[in-house]
């Protein structure tokens, strides 16, 4: 019987739990504009604003990690 108390059931848990080593200069993180859905790179210190339409709500992209779910 499967009685593992793993958090994989309802919440995603990445396979490795160690954080990636931080570079001294991070590559710009890509966000998605709430309005026009364009991908906008934002560097630390940049204004939080879409380059094209000026919308100020930006969404983060989905993680690139592989997430494992139980099909239950």
């Amino acid at each position: 019987m499967d009685s593992q108390p793993e958090p994989k059931d309802s919440q995603p848990k990445p396979k490795d739990s160690q954080p990636e080593p931080k570079d001294s200069q991070l590559e710009p993180v890509i966000y998605i504009c709430g309005d026009c859905r364009k991908e906008i790179p934002v560097k630390p210190g940049d204004a939080v604003q879409c380059r094209e339409c000026g919308y100020r709500i930006l969404y983060k992209k989905r993680t690139s990690r592989i997430i494992q779910y139980e099909a239950r």
Binding site: S10, P12, R62, I66, I67, Q68, Y69, E70, A71, R72
Partner: peptide, 26 residues
């Protein structure tokens, strides 16, 4: 035999990961 583990690389659809996994299991 039935699908038990679903490894999602990318899912930009409107269906949530766990709902999609549940459907695949069935």
């Amino acid at each position: 035999m039935a699908i038990e583990k679903v490894l999602i690389v990318n899912n930009t659809s409107v269906m949530a990961d766990e709902i999609l996994s549940h459907r695949l299991g069935l």
